[in-house]
Amino acid sequence: MTTFPGLANCHSHVFHRALRGRAQPGGERGGDTFWGWRDRMYALAAVLDPDLLHDLAVATYAEMRLAGIGVVGEFHYLHHGPDGTPYDDPNATGEALIAAAREVGLRICLLDTAYLEVTEHVHRRFADTDGEAWAGRVNDLAARHAGADDVVVGAAIHSVRAVPADQLATVAGALPDAPLHVHVSEQPAENEWCLATSGLTPVALLAEAGVWTPRTTAVHATHLTDADVILLGDATAYACFCPTTEAELADGVGPSVRLREAGARLTLGSDSNTVIDVFAEARAVEMHERLVTGRRGAWGAAKLTEAATRTGYASLGFTPDLAETDTVTLRDSVRLAGVDEPLWAATASDVEPPSDLPYDAAEVTAMLRRAVDALWERV
């Protein structure tokens, strides 16, 4: 047996798990670009309710625990009913996700995401009326869970397209001591739109609003200028890379080494949950860098382990030492035979199931199948 610190999954959209293997190019549900994939994702978002979201989250979070993940950052924007009407409890969907994480013993940073621009019908269920309305709702949710040792309520800006520039500072300041995450520069089209409408890159626009601080995480950060890299580094912000999703959606390869050298701190996420395997995400950061540069060794095992564990915990508002409490045990498998550094060879399937998980792998498999099938039946 080999022990490893608990793994941090710093960026998850749990309902995207239902897209795994069902939104591929050339298929009925697919699309050959990010935007075609997004159409299928929106179709799922349109039919979810708190109960089905809870069921899918229980199964997906159980899969995360089987993969050795001790904490998840859930980037949550499915706030309201399909027509935008709030539920009787305006935080019903957020509470459904928190309850699901607790059911399987997973620590959660619920990143309640501001989404204020409605340009398509499905956006109505994402959107609060303005930044102040969003801030009031998220502060209520944070107050309910103040002092909990297994829940952190943080804030998120969905993107510069979803939150108007004059609302960014309101969102950034709503929970001043909590983690703040933001999708930024995932696709070139995002940068082009931002430059055309503001004359600034997304990173620079967010900097003007005071978004970048040591508590902020830039998610994806794929298409950055040199000036963007300096802004994130000077803020000692986190940069959350999600390599399996960024490859799945043809996003590109972000400048991980330049960000690190500038002072930013790497974390890792499963994002669309096409793969739930932090070992795979960590290795992919190095392997993608090799493909881009033609050189090996930009990221050693120690740096990647730190990103996958303690740095990830800190970015989600949990004490980094909790990674030691959430220790992962790796079985002596064929993949690890003769290996002296497990990070380079281990997969999620090498993780010994945690003793406190209330479901075994077969039960989790059945739960996932039921929840995914039930969701697609509604589409």
Rank of each mutant, 00 (worst) to 15 (best):
T305M: 12
L195S: 06
H181T: 12
A209F: 03
V211Y: 05
M1L: 10
T2I: 09
T245N: 02
P176E: 10
L322A: 09
N9L: 02
V334G: 09
Y313F: 13
A366V: 06
A247T: 10
T60L: 03
S349Y: 09
D128R: 13
A174R: 14
D234Q: 10
R265H: 14
A314E: 13
G30Q: 11
D360E: 11
V203G: 12
R22A: 13
F34H: 06
D149S: 15
T60K: 07
I157L: 15
P5Y: 14
I157G: 10
L97H: 10
Y238D: 03
F241E: 00
W299M: 09
A189W: 11
T170L: 12
Q167R: 15
W35A: 13
D228Y: 06
A172P: 12
G30H: 06
R38E: 00
L180M: 08
Y87I: 03
A99P: 09
A96C: 07
V122H: 13
A189D: 15
H121T: 04
T3K: 12
L304R: 10
A361Y: 00
G81V: 03
V211C: 14
G105E: 11
E117W: 02
A221M: 08
G147K: 09
T329M: 02
N139Q: 15
G263Q: 06
G105Y: 14
P25C: 04
D373E: 14
A302Q: 08
V58T: 06
H220I: 10
A362R: 10
L111V: 11
G31P: 02
D140S: 14
G68S: 05
L375R: 06
N139G: 15
G30V: 01
E341P: 05
L259T: 10
D39T: 12
A284D: 06
G252P: 08
L141S: 02
E95S: 04
G294K: 11
D271A: 04
L205Y: 10
C240V: 09
L266K: 07
S159E: 05
P82N: 10
V184R: 08
L316P: 00
W344G: 00
T197A: 09
N191Y: 07
A302R: 15
V160G: 12
V151Y: 01
L266V: 06
G84I: 05
L7F: 15
E190T: 14
A345N: 05
A62S: 08
T93N: 15
E281I: 02
A146K: 11
R258E: 15
G312Q: 01
R144A: 03
G31T: 09
